[in-house]
Simulated assay, not measured.
Amino acid sequence: MRRSSSRLIRLCLSTAAAVALSVGSLGAAPLATAVDGPVQLPALGGPLADGAPCAKASGRRAESTPWPLTTLQLPQVWRLTEGAGVTVAVVDTGVGQDVPALRGRVRAVGDAGKDCVGHGSFAAGVIAAAPVDGSAFAGVAPKARILAVRGTDERGTATPDRVASGIRTATDEGARVVYVANALLAGRTELTAAVKYAADHDVVVVAPAAPDTAPQASDGSKSDTSARPYFPAFVAQALSVSDYGPDGTRPSSAPDPFAADLAAPGDGVVGTAPSGAGHYIGSGSSLAAAHVAGAVALVRARYPELNAAEVIHRLQSTAYPSVPPRLDPYAAVSLLLPHDRSTTTEQPAAHVDPAPSDVPARRAMVIAVAGAVFVLVLAAAAVVVPRGKARNWRPADA
């Protein structure tokens, strides 16, 4: 989509500001511009340090349309599907129960109805927030349901066992899509088994291809942004996602994703706070994965007959050609694809009339010839009879 140069500059500046401010505590974060409007939003943080306060409600809302909504053509998508009837599990820090944009559509497992960190509530809003008065923000699938499943401790620290257990719990609780917020270097065995368990139950698992912030190098001198396999995204059956910003590029300081399946908006992203109607701004592959999880809900609502593998194929085959391919929800829910059960209909058997019989033709020919002979006989009689009578039927040479 083409934008004026001035708007593009503002968008790039806002993204850079969001990335710079995304490190630190959610409750004490400074303000960052959410989109190209004047409203400023507090920045989303990562796991909380010991003693840090829990996330608070935001008193600010995004008043202008966040860039992912226009980039992903979501208003056009919602004419076809809004994700109704599909449950998306959010395996994260929990999802707050007092979020107006999610009201009536959140079910929590255990203590996952409390979100001290705020990341799970933010991601749930990106996936399924409904429009509310006074705000231009909405999630990708605004009528989908959310299943909150804890994948971290209360301070936001994830472990392979917690995440694997969260994936299995979400599957057993009936989710058709499982969003995982974390990208872990360890836990290959248990996370591979968990993703396979979900796939065997026709569940699509979506996960970030890299963490939101790069881990420290082994010598502790700097962040290590080199590409490496992270789990559960690296598991074959999972849908791995990397991020890009309003200008189409990734921040140079972000971890390099390892062979991501899709890319989606993930920098300078607006999301819901853990309580109240306000918003925060955040960046990272985990937020890109939230956009893809919402898109999976749209496809599963639009084409309920497709299994998990077919849903993933549809999203990848309709994505904008790039490296990695960029999510295109409108194409995913609207294009007709060959060899896809969502567009395959039984064609009625062709009816071929039998070859016409030649009997009527022969009969007509006989009648025509007989008629012609009869006419000739009558014509001859019309000439011969009068002359015969005139000569009293005497021969002409008599």
Rank of each mutant, 00 (worst) to 15 (best):
A144V: 03
P30R: 06
T70Y: 09
L337G: 08
A308E: 07
T159R: 04
P160T: 02
Q316L: 11
D200Q: 14
L31E: 05
S221K: 13
G294P: 02
Y179N: 06
V35F: 12
R188I: 12
A18G: 04
P257F: 11
V384Y: 09
A55P: 01
P265W: 00
V323D: 15
V178F: 13
A207N: 14
G113H: 01
R341D: 11
G51N: 06
L185I: 13
V383E: 08
G174N: 07
F234I: 03
L315H: 00
T65G: 06
T345F: 15
T157A: 14
G139V: 02
A170C: 11
Y280S: 00
S275E: 05
G110K: 09
I312R: 03
P68Q: 06
V178H: 08
P75S: 02
A123H: 07
G96T: 03
A309S: 12
V203W: 04
V132N: 06
Q76S: 15
D256E: 10
F374D: 13
G282A: 04
T159K: 02
P208E: 07
A273P: 04
P255Q: 08
D115T: 01
S285P: 02
A380E: 15
T152C: 05
A238S: 04
R300V: 03
F122N: 00
R176F: 12
V375L: 14
V35E: 07
